[in-house]
């Protein structure tokens, strides 16, 4: 139990996927413009990421390892993730068209959101147990969402700012992320696996 809690805190605060590990930067830059879409994206990512870890872990442990097919890891993982994303996309389009519109092209981009691929790969590399892997997926996605939502709040305020021309958009967002990353350093060493 303590180890699970540690995993949660470590991957939300210390080893934050966006701010410390650089996974999922594209959607982080793309959909953090508005709070509403950031929250929508966050929910999609939390769902997809947890599911992805679950499925890929099972697949790896019960299919790839027994048959010595570890070298198929990348191919299978990406296929699982791509299908999952497609599933979420078709569902969302029907259930909430407004949310679908807001997320726009970024839903297909979840496929290429390396955070999701990374969480699947890392769960295997870190040799997590099944439960740990799922918790890890959840924590990592929450960490991603936290960074995304904070950034969305900040960017809504930056909309009103008179940012120098050449720094507008991604440049200032990256610098903000940098300072945010510095701020998160405060949690360094607070929890260790």
């Amino acid at each position: 139990m303590e180890r699970l809690l540690t995993i949660i805190f470590v991957y939300i605060l210390v080893e934050n996927f966006v701010l410390h590990r650089f996974f999922g930067i594209c959607p982080f830059l793309g959909v953090s413009r508005k709070m509403e879409t950031a929250i929508g994206m966050s929910m999609a990512v939390v769902f997809v990421m947890t599911m992805a870890t679950l499925v890929t872990w099972l697949l790896y442990s019960f299919v790839l390892v027994p048959y010595n097919l570890e070298y198929l890891q990348i191919v299978t993982f990406i296929l699982v993730i791509a299908s999952l994303v497609q599933l979420v996309e078709t569902t969302l389009r029907k259930i909430s068209p407004t949310l679908y519109q807001g997320l726009g092209i970024f839903l297909p981009l979840i496929t290429t959101n390396c955070a999701i691929m990374a969480v699947a790969l890392l769960a295997v590399r870190e040799e997590f147990t099944f439960v740990e892997a799922v918790v890890f997926g959840l924590a990592a996605s929450i960490g991603f969402s936290l960074a995304l939502v904070i950034m969305a709040g900040i960017r809504e305020r930056l909309e009103l700012a008179e940012i120098p021309d050449v720094l507008q958009g991604p440049a200032v967002t990256l610098i903000t992320a940098g300072i945010l990353s510095l701020a998160f350093l405060g949690f360094g060493g607070m929890f260790t696996l």
Partner: peptide, 21 residues
């Protein structure tokens, strides 16, 4: 540091924008 990567890339983008402009 990771933070430095963000900040350096942000500033670099600014420089590149200036050059492109």
């Amino acid at each position: 540091q990771p933070a430095g990567a963000f900040i350096a890339l942000g500033l670099l983008l600014g420089v590149v924008n200036i050059i492109f402009k």
